[in-house]
Design a binder for these strands. Structure first.
Length: 295
DNA sequence: ATCCAGGATGTAT
DNA sequence: ATACATCATGGA
């Protein structure tokens, strides 16, 4: 086991571990206290969160300006990357458009950062997210770990890694339905096969501009434009991506009716521009979380 | 019981 | 290209 502490006073802008992990942008971190996802008890200062993938377990907890970690290896750079700690959040917030909804959303959740989940787990989790409530999406990912992941030990406790592409490709549709995936079961299996085959990789997508990358991602089964945007934003660092989900579409109707166009691509362009362009995905995530926690 | 959830796919036009 | 029905599951 390895461990260490990251000083959060060295990064640009604030950081809040709880709101970052529990704002519905990642379904790959779990609270070590076993409490339900989205508890929002505001007392997560002592709560460890864990994630596991690629034979690696990571535990983190925040205490003020200290981010403690324990892991199977030295994961400092991984944590900095996955939790968006190298983003200049002060500059991003400063550059956000100045309208009432955005300002209120951004000011309500200081330290909310965009995560960079590992590609395959992010892809699978958002394929599972369609027509599904947030807490259940999280439970589905935990079920996939239990059924297909590898047990891995850290400091006397056993965790399960998120399954690798080959592990999920070997699942049957019947098995996946038994885990409660419903009609998403064949999507998950087929997409896992595609990733395992290596004919469409993360690096190919990363070499493409934003809109091309979104089109390419929809080649995966069960991935439409919205899920593609989520993967681009929450895994691949396309911070201009604005996933158009039901919450954001409602916000468009109420606050930005002019952005409502006849296609996903056009509406996306309009809202992306309205949300400031380069970091529109950040704005989208603040607004999404704000709308969801207000009602 | 009926409705709905961070939508995508298949089919018909 | 665009419109529409259909797709499981569990919680309210």
């Amino acid at each position: 086991m390895d461990s260490g502490t990251l000083s959060l006073s060295d990064i640009d802008g604030p950081f809040d571990l709880e709101v970052t992990i529990e704002s519905g942008q990642t379904y790959l971190w779990a609270r070590a206290d076993g409490r339900t996802y989205e508890t929002h008890d505001g007392q997560s200062g002592d709560v460890w969160y864990w994630t596991a993938y690629n034979d690696q377990v990571i535990r983190v907890r925040q205490q003020g300006t200290r981010l403690e970690w324990e892991a199977t290896d030295n994961v400092e750079s991984t944590i900095v990357d996955q939790l968006g700690l190298s983003d200049d959040l002060d500059a991003i917030v400063e550059s956000a458009p100045d309208d009432p909804l955005i300002t209120e959303a951004v000011e309500s959740y200081p330290g909310l950062r965009i995560v960079r989940d590992p590609f395959f787990p992010c892809l699978i989790s958002f394929i599972c997210s369609t027509q599904m409530r947030v807490p259940r999406i999280f439970k589905m990912q935990q079920s996939l770990r239990k059924a297909y992941g590898d047990p891995i030990n850290l400091d006397g406790r056993t965790y399960r890694t998120f399954p690798k592409p080959s592990q999920l490709a070997g699942a049957t549709e019947t098995e996946l339905r038994a885990l409660g995936l419903g009609y998403r079961a064949p999507y998950v299996r087929q997409t896992a096969e595609m990733v395992a085959s290596g004919r469409l990789t993360k690096d190919i997508i990363l070499g493409q501009d934003y809109e091309t990358a979104r089109e390419t991602l929809t080649e995966f089964i069960g991935v439409g434009p919205k899920v593609a945007d989520c993967v681009l934003l929450f895994s691949l660092g396309y911070l201009q991506a604005v996933p158009l989900d039901t919450w954001i579409r409602t916000a468009i109707e109420e606050y930005y009716p002019g952005c409502s166009k006849n296609s996903y691509a056009e509406t996306s362009r309009a809202l992306r521009s309205r949300f400031g362009g380069e970091f529109a995905g950040y704005v989208q995530t603040y607004v999404f979380h704000h709308l969801r926690t207000q009602s």
